[in-house]
Amino acid sequence: MKSKLYKTCEFFIIFILLPVSFIFPYAVYVKLGLGVVGFAYVIYMLLKIENQEFTINKHLNWYKFWKVTLLKFFVIAVLTTFFVYITNKSLLFQVVLNKPKMWLVILFVYSLFSVYPQELLYRTFFHVRYSDLVSNTKGLIFINALVFSLGHIFFKNALVLLFTFIGGLLFAITFVKTKSTVLVSVEHAIYGCWLFTVGLGEMLGFPT
């Protein structure tokens, strides 16, 4: 299970074949079943094969993290607000203004049940399993961003693929620097929640 051939086949199935298959019209329950089985496999590999532990590092540099992340968030907030304003002004902050309770619930559910599993798969599992297959760090980050974007291909939306590719780059860089699933999950949650808040949620599958 640690051979390069096994890992290459594993990578192809989990990060390319499976997400691409989701664009085809077959039963939703089959897709959900494949997703659950795949995620269970990821957890098993992390715990039993790679000997990873789901613990929080007590020595994380939260000050530096917030300093860098808030700066990136400011840039993202300005650009996305402007984008929504010029493309469809009626969507701007419409959920938080019209359905504040639903907005809060969705932020909580998304952050806990979507963001963290995504980061376990696309950052922790990906980097633990495949860092020895790609010796160049920049190349590894680029591939990670590509497959993260590909994981959203079922939306069949070019803008979603662009947004998730950029997000994938940011998240991969954070993970490479910090080696922390917690920090990259917090960053992911901040940006994702903001996109929902500013008015881009429907495009990304958020209920509106």
Rank of each mutant, 00 (worst) to 15 (best):
T80H: 02
T174A: 15
L97W: 03
L146Y: 03
L112G: 01
L150R: 04
P25K: 15
L159I: 05
F171I: 08
K99D: 10
F163Q: 08
A189I: 08
Y110M: 09
V96A: 15
L79Y: 01
S90M: 14
I23M: 13
V128P: 00
M203V: 15
Y41K: 09
Y63V: 15
A40Q: 04
Y85P: 07
E187I: 10
S149W: 10
S180D: 03
L46G: 15
T197H: 15
F125E: 03
V28F: 14
F15H: 02
Y6E: 03
L161A: 11
T174E: 15
F148V: 08
L34E: 02
R129N: 11
S135Q: 11
A27L: 11
A172C: 09
F73C: 14
L71D: 03
F175T: 07
K48T: 11
I76D: 05
F171S: 09
R129A: 10
L121H: 01
I143S: 08
L79R: 00
W62M: 04
M45F: 11
V95S: 08
L183V: 03
L79V: 07
V147R: 00
I166V: 13
I16K: 00
A172E: 04
I106R: 03
L140F: 00
A77K: 09
Q118R: 11
L204M: 14
E202S: 12
N61K: 03
T164R: 01
Y130A: 01
Y122S: 01
V109Y: 09
I14A: 04
I141H: 02
I49P: 01
W62N: 01
L60I: 12
G38E: 00
F93D: 05
M203N: 12
K7N: 03
L140K: 00
K48S: 15
Y63K: 14
F113K: 12
R123E: 08
A27V: 14
G168H: 06
V78M: 11
V115F: 09
V95A: 08
M45T: 12
P100C: 05
T197D: 11
L79S: 07
L161T: 14
F108L: 13
G35N: 10
F24K: 01
A172N: 03
F163I: 12
I49H: 05
H59W: 07
H127S: 02
L161V: 13
S90E: 13
T164A: 06
S111C: 06
H59Q: 10
I43Y: 05
I13L: 09
A189F: 07
V105F: 08
Y63I: 11
I16F: 08
T137Y: 00
L162Q: 00
L159Y: 05
I153T: 10
P207Q: 06
N157V: 09
K156W: 04
K31P: 10
N136V: 06
G201A: 13
E50R: 12
N51E: 12
I173R: 15
K72R: 14
P19T: 07
I56M: 03
S111Y: 05
P117R: 02
F196N: 10
F12L: 10
L120G: 06
L97P: 02
G151A: 07
H188N: 12
L104M: 02
I16A: 04
Y41V: 14
L104R: 00
H59T: 08
L170E: 12
L71C: 12
K67G: 11
P207T: 07
F175R: 04
C9L: 06
A172D: 05
Y116M: 10
